[in-house]
Design a binder for these strands. Sequence first.
DNA 1: GCATAAGTATAGCTATTGCTATAACTGCGC
DNA 2: GCGCAGTTATAGCAATAGCTATACTTATGC
Lengths: 152, 152
Amino acid sequence: MREPPSSAPEGSLIDPEVHVESFRQAREARRLELVEDYVELIADLIGDGGEARQVDIAARLGVAQPTVAKMLKRLAEDGLVQQRPYRGVFLTAAGEALAAQSRERHRIVERFLCAVGVSPETARRDAEGIEHHVSAETLDAFRRFADGHSDA
Amino acid sequence: MREPPSSAPEGSLIDPEVHVESFRQAREARRLELVEDYVELIADLIGDGGEARQVDIAARLGVAQPTVAKMLKRLAEDGLVQQRPYRGVFLTAAGEALAAQSRERHRIVERFLCAVGVSPETARRDAEGIEHHVSAETLDAFRRFADGHSDA
DNA sequence: GCATAAGTATAGCTATTGCTATAACTGCGC
DNA sequence: GCGCAGTTATAGCAATAGCTATACTTATGC
Ligand SMILES: [Mn+2]
Ligand SMILES: [Mn+2]
Ligand SMILES: [Mn+2]
Ligand SMILES: [Mn+2]
């Protein structure tokens, strides 16, 4: 930490200021993961059955219902959902927009993994985590690749 | 939640028991992210300068030094590192093993992203988050693809 | 219309991951 | 050998994300 950038050529380490950017980006993505998964799931549940209820969200996410209740409160505070007490939860315009974007990115990542030779089951599972860390540039590359490798 | 698997064909939703597996896997990966990043970084710092000091770890991760101190205590409890007070931190055999595995996976993911057309800078940044969600099967696919697309 | 089941809300707990402020220690320079 | 800069340790706080237990509300069957 006390030498100019070009004096220690021994290891595999890059410049600290550059290195830290990657970790910051990953932390920011991790911070948004849950929110993205929630609005995407809520949109899917509403599209599937007309309503998104806490118990169904909890069952799909694999968490307890009070955990969902608390998160929905936060999403409501953030203006992404609107909940009517003892009725379901609905997406605001902002929530719809984030859900659409998240769903599209999710779909592209999963399709790309399949295109590169991963089995559908593994692609489904890995995509659930990978999606949140895929930047716009990488998403473009994934889309191009998948498009070029579909038999349509 | 009260109907047999094949009765509501309207939406894009898969079986809840299948769906939940993806979310559980992503949560588990998220739980291990920090640990993997720490041991990998510690291994790199030791390889580069012979020692891993809290201030350097903190600077690379972009967090405060007490945050690193607390995490190192946890890693020591978990048997991954050994710290000597006011000296640096060192990896145990278990820590070395996890570091080697994490670094290799990280390297493959980054190389793969480049091979698929992502710029080196974006590949570096996205790989920092993506790596933790890549299963063994997907890693194999990435490795195969990158090997087939290197000009060596 | 009432009992009961299903769903939701709330309280209170824990663990994790971050922070700032400050104290304590080590190693060097002189 | 002492002082001081650098490093590490510790205390205390906050936000997030999970849990169980329990109370409350709604919907449904009869
Ligand atoms: Mn998703
Ligand atoms: Mn996801
Ligand atoms: Mn890594
Ligand atoms: Mn990482």
